[in-house]
């Protein structure tokens, strides 16, 4: 655990700084009320009302998120494999190639079906 204590120290410091900054700006800055100022910015026209929960998000982003998850998981397995690769050698290589190939199948599918195309 000692390895992580310094991280905590730095994190506390950074948090303190950030919170302080956010807090202080409330006092340092002026306060002049103006209705328009509090509206969302939309190039000067009346802002579009946003539905509760931030509106609807294009599906494309979800696909990207899903893909990211898939590959992140792949990375999770690649890291320990890489670190201990020298112990496993050829066996490790073969197994990992199989693993990558399997994930690659999904990847090829998504690519061919246009999952990676943005418009």
């Amino acid at each position: 655990m000692e390895l992580y204590t310094p991280v905590l120290a730095l994190a506390l410091l950074a948090t303190g700084f950030a919170v302080f900054s956010v807090a202080i700006s409330a006092f340092t800055g002026p306060k002049r009320y103006n209705r328009a100022k509090l509206d969302s910015y939309e190039c000067g026209i009346e802002p579009t009302p946003q539905p509760i929960g931030g509106g609807r998000i294009p599906v494309k982003y979800f696909i990207t998120a899903m893909l990211f998850i898939v590959f992140d998981i792949e990375i999770i397995f690649l890291y320990p494999w890489a670190v201990h690769f020298d112990a496993m050698r050829l066996f490790g290589l073969i197994e990992m190639v199989l693993f990558i190939a399997t994930v690659f199948v999904a990847y090829a599918y998504v690519w061919r079906r246009g999952g990676l195309d943005w418009d």
Partner: peptide
Amino acid sequence: ALKEDIVPKAADKVVFVLAPVIAV
């Protein structure tokens, strides 16, 4: 630091204030 700190009406106040902290 000397500029006005605006929190838009439509914003989710807590998250809005928290976001820069989380980023930094």
